[in-house]
């Protein structure tokens, strides 16, 4: 099913600008877990933003940026695995537009042509949450450790919506998978709310309030750890906690990405996963 004629499945792990710049521990854990699951990771010869910071609200050419990365993936015979909700949505939107709009296709084709690239439009794009959910049986075989802490999980909005370009998973699938791997998860009222990270760009306080209210919802419903797998969510939920809890640092909650959490299940040390929370990681 996954491995054709004994070949490993080739993937490009696309971190996106935010993860590339700020969440090395997440990128590292992702490559570790994906390698352990047997994927062959192809390095992108050059990185370019997926266009999510532009979108058509800035220029119609946003699509050329994502098409460039998709064209490279096609050239190397690789799928793309994204680590960020925005990138996932943007690459899929690119595929969607290119397959339906001849005008967009012609314009993008002529830009890629000048770089000696071409793109047929068929590169599969999945977010790492979707990949890990697909591979949960293989993950289960490798679980070596029981985690005592309780986890609040969330999925990036853009891997779930809009339905025309989203994958197949639902919001609950991640939680169901983690429970089946023996991770204790909590149900919390704001589980399906957006973390509000993008609001940090136009109204910082509004963004902080949204993120904090989601974190508080998780914490007051029993979560010891918050788990999210998106550059923007991580920026909001992890890095902004200093501001959120500046008067109440005791209320801060550790934030792990899904690959780091899976890494703990596999038995990796907290040092190798770059996790710095000794209290919840006291495995005894």
């Amino acid at each position: 099913m996954f491995f054709l004629r004994g070949e490993k499945l080739k993937i490009i792990v696309f971190p996106g600008c935010m993860v590339l710049a700020r969440f090395h521990e997440y990128e590292m854990a992702s490559t570790m877990i994906l390698k352990q699951l047997g994927y062959e990771i192809i390095e992108l010869p050059e990185f370019c933003c997926c266009g999510a910071s532009l979108m058509p609200g800035v220029t119609d050419n946003w699509i050329n940026l994502s098409a460039h990365t998709l064209a490279l993936a096609e050239k190397y015979g690789a799928e793309i695995v994204t680590l960020c909700g925005s990138c996932t949505g943007n690459f899929r939107r690119t595929n969607h537009y290119l397959s339906r709009d001849p005008e967009v296709r012609d314009r993008t084709r002529s830009a890629l042509d000048k770089l000696d690239l071409s793109y047929e439009g068929d590169v599969k794009v999945r977010h790492i949450i979707e990949v890990l959910i697909d591979r949960q049986e293989d993950i289960r075989k490798r679980v070596r450790r029981h985690l005592k802490f309780k986890v609040a999980v969330t999925c990036p909005c853009q891997i779930l919506r809009p339905k025309e370009i989203s994958g197949t998973i639902t919001h609950q699938d991640l939680q169901i998978m983690l429970e089946s791997l023996g991770v204790q998860t909590v149900v919390y009222p704001q589980q399906y709310e957006c973390c509000g990270a993008t609001a940090l760009l136009f109204d910082e306080q509004f963004g902080i309030d949204k993120g904090m209210s989601k974190l508080e919802s998780a914490r007051t419903h029993g979560a010891d750890v918050f788990c999210t797998s998106c550059g923007n969510c991580l920026y909001q939920m992890d890095r902004y906690q200093n501001k959120m809890y500046q008067n109440n640092p005791g209320c801060k909650i550790p934030v792990f990405s899904l690959p780091q959490l899976i890494g703990l299940l596999f038995g990796y040390s907290k040092e190798s996963l770059h996790l710095e929370y000794p209290e919840v990681l006291n495995f005894g």
Binding site: E46, F47, L65, R107
Partner: peptide, 20 residues
């Protein structure tokens, strides 16, 4: 972090993608 170095897209290529 044990990650491979990245190279950002070449100036000229990025220009072509954005100026078209």
């Amino acid at each position: 972090y044990g990650l491979k170095p990245v190279r950002l897209i070449e100036e000229q290529k990025k220009k072509i993608l954005l100026e078209n």
